[in-house]
Design a protein around this nucleic acid. Sequence first.
DNA 1: TTAAAAATGATGTACGTAAATCAAAAATAG
DNA 2: CTATTTTTGATTTACGTACATCATTTTTAA
Lengths: 342, 342
Amino acid sequence: MRPTVHDIAAEAGVSLATVDRVMNARPGVREKTRVKVEQAIEKLGYVRDVAAANLAKGRSYPFTFILPCNENAFMAELRAAVIQANERGRIERTQITIVDVPAFDADALSDALLAAGETDTAGIAVVAIEADPVREAVRKLTERGIPVVTLVSDLEDSTRDHYAGVDNPAAGRTAATLLGRFLDARNGAIGVLAGSLSVRDHQNRFAGFSQIMAAHFPNLTILPPMEGRDDLPLARSLVCEAVDTHPDMIGLYSLGAGNRGLIAALEETRAKGREIVTIAHELSVHSREALESGLFDVILNQDAGHEVRSAIRVLKAKADGLAVIAAQERIRIDIFIKDNLP
Amino acid sequence: MRPTVHDIAAEAGVSLATVDRVMNARPGVREKTRVKVEQAIEKLGYVRDVAAANLAKGRSYPFTFILPCNENAFMAELRAAVIQANERGRIERTQITIVDVPAFDADALSDALLAAGETDTAGIAVVAIEADPVREAVRKLTERGIPVVTLVSDLEDSTRDHYAGVDNPAAGRTAATLLGRFLDARNGAIGVLAGSLSVRDHQNRFAGFSQIMAAHFPNLTILPPMEGRDDLPLARSLVCEAVDTHPDMIGLYSLGAGNRGLIAALEETRAKGREIVTIAHELSVHSREALESGLFDVILNQDAGHEVRSAIRVLKAKADGLAVIAAQERIRIDIFIKDNLP
DNA sequence: TTAAAAATGATGTACGTAAATCAAAAATAG
DNA sequence: CTATTTTTGATTTACGTACATCATTTTTAA
């Protein structure tokens, strides 16, 4: 049987009240007594029963998640993951309020952050936009002791407590290595399709991609990146045009989320008898289908569920003033080919 | 505020005792009353506070994990994962007893299974060996209502409740696709190094690998598989010999866990100025180093921690007579290249 | 040495659920 | 309609911890 506070009290030769004072850092305990109790805890290997403690505390964690009303599959999945976490969170005493903000609107986002800070919130998770008003809002929040975690997209040079998302330069490097190796010694051009290069994630991915391409695959040249803005017809026409303009284009890296336009373009390209080795981001029903049909060769993925759960763990830890185990919270970049689809 | 049993009682117009009878399927409730209570639960969206329930029940789950005393890195990691799960399991009221059995010994394993069944156990997880006495032991256990989960290695045509491990044929197919594509249009021979082809996992991986190779990469021929038996010097000499004997060998798939002998052999090969595109299994300090230095090109990995946690979740669910969400318990095959290492 | 301050003990209530007991009411059988 | 069985209610204790109150002891300052 695992030891309880009673066992600690008996072992240390003090009362339950004193053990409680030590355990919860309440005042009124002599140093000598505190040490006695701590030694008893050590000796018996006592671990606080968190479930019972939370029950007694009646504590709950009202968290706020600020999400952009983007319409792409990944954001939908992220939102679903938050909702699901909220449902099962009843057990862990977390309750999440989702706040919607227009996509790519820095002012709206900073307003939403400040507004969330005025509510009864134990911590805020936010899909960040790189902009000074946002940084300023985050600074005000953290200054007031409200934990802030960036989700999916980070906010550099800010006072946010943690970033729950993938290493985007590494994602770009991964794409470069795979594309380069799949094309082995062939010579040719590589297209790059981004959502928008004004978004930090996409910038970072492109930087990592370019770096490895330049260093290891001199046989491949990168074409100027296209910006599809998550817009189906635009992405499609951009890709089609690039394929036509560059007959030597043999590879493509799509580092955004506008997969459906891309898929349409690749279907047309295939119909014309050309195959482009393609690496895209984010697993969804559409991208999965493209991978299975061979239109995509690789999908790099960040697991929205993992990111949300990690964000919640970190917020909880910060709210309790506990340390975060960085290694445990690192979000992996998943590589999927048609053979290892989940 | 989330509703409690008291709220249910008030809503249904019955006493607390009756609600308790309904909730815990105790006898002595009229059908009409039971329906009233269930409707109140539905209406208020009541969810049992599992933490409080476990606290009140004082229930604990004594599980047994039967592991082979293999000395390879993966088994060590698996064991560590079990120990870690046991430590943090104090909170979830699971306590795990580890039983060691000699590796590859079917009789010892079946004895251990039956012995575990005699102890006070709420469920058994076992790294299975394909053999009839093992199947028979599992049958006896499940017949007596003891949940049995196979871990890492499955037991086909048995009465085990669940398999917590990866899809090994899919792992082999993944290796084949990556190896084939990395070698693009080159012609040559592919070596295969197994631990032992009498082990089901390795058989399955080899089958999947051969299937895709034959179907999609006629430019590559598979050499007869070598058996390294997790033995460092043996694996090393086998690989060195194969490299010397087959000057056209340009790729290698190591589907076992004997990575260190393989790494030694590849170092020698590299010293001779030859590079072999290599895919190996299981991430460890050694294999990671080999990946970073370019000796390995890809590592396929199964996360021991995930497998152990999944096994525990399933055992708990089975012990409570609850359903298992299959999709949630699927163990992924991770692909690592040097750019996406965690 | 005494008064004040600090430290400790003793005790009770609460959290949400489980489980038991005994009394009371309702339904059913004869 | 009574006797019996079944169903329901009321109440209590327990799980392990948090937190508050008040009494008592010990320590420190004057």
